[in-house]
Design a protein around this nucleic acid. Structure first.
Length: 213
DNA sequence: CCCTGATTCGC
DNA sequence: GCGAATCAGG
């Protein structure tokens, strides 16, 4: 795959936005991050900030305040076979199988009690639309809950932008407050969550039925 | 180990 | 010009 004007343009744009070389490579497809970095240098845009020849210190980008949601920029008309991978940080668990159909349980709000005082805030509910059946706290075994909460104490407390393929994407806390983060511990291979949170998220129908009040 | 960018050098 | 291999670092 060659550096067409179009691809170079995407490269420049993303690099200017502070995206990492690997992210750019992923988006472009057909190139490695090395290729991207090499190109960046050849284009002479390695050190963005002119004059300063020292540490770039791009740490600030990731630490940005309220994690900005990646702008859904319309993929430029990419002629080459571009996978056009949608950037969807948090994926819902894969469609459950028939019999054992597990259902994602409601993420447990932080704290140690099952009564979590949430900040006053109007619920965001589509007018007239009934909510899908929400698993209640008592549908999850106490042991499972306990381990989840135990793990949450040791969580890496990552921000949305810090999540990767292999970090647990279990949310903890209220997104509307500062006290919100993602577990971030190593996720089960192929799963979106860590061991403990997989246990909370995937509940066999039968078990849920039995525990339901 | 995960990740980052920087540099080198054969192609 | 290109980018894999390697280096240096968080």
């Amino acid at each position: 795959m060659s550096w067409t004007d179009e691809r170079v343009e995407t490269l420049k744009k993303m690099w200017a936005e502070g995206q990492s070389a690997s992210q750019i490579a992923k988006e472009l497809g057909g190139v490695t991050r090395n290729a991207v970095i090499g190109k960046v240098h050849r284009l002479g845009l390695s050190n963005r900030v002119g004059g300063n020849g020292d540490k770039p210190e791009e740490e600030a980008v990731a630490e940005a305040p309220a994690a900005r949601v990646e702008p859904v920029r319309a993929a430029a008309p990419e002629a080459p076979a571009a996978p056009a991978a949608p950037v969807q940080p948090v994926r819902a668990p894969a469609e459950p199988r028939a019999a054992e159909r597990p259902q994602p349980a409601a993420p447990v709000s932080n704290g140690g009690n099952n009564v979590t005082p949430l900040p006053l805030r109007k619920a965001i509910v589509p007018a007239g639309q009934p909510l899908p059946p929400q698993p209640s706290i008592n549908e999850i075994s106490p042991e499972t809950l306990a381990s989840a909460r135990e793990v949450e104490k040791r969580a890496r407390k990552l921000t949305l932008m810090e999540l990767t393929e292999r970090t647990c994407k279990w949310p903890v806390g209220d997104p509307a407050t500062e006290d919100f983060w993602f577990c971030g511990l190593p996720s089960q291979p192929g799963k979106p969550y860590c061991d403990a949170h997989v246990g909370v998220a995937f509940q066999p129908m039968s078990a849920r039925r039995d525990r339901r009040r």
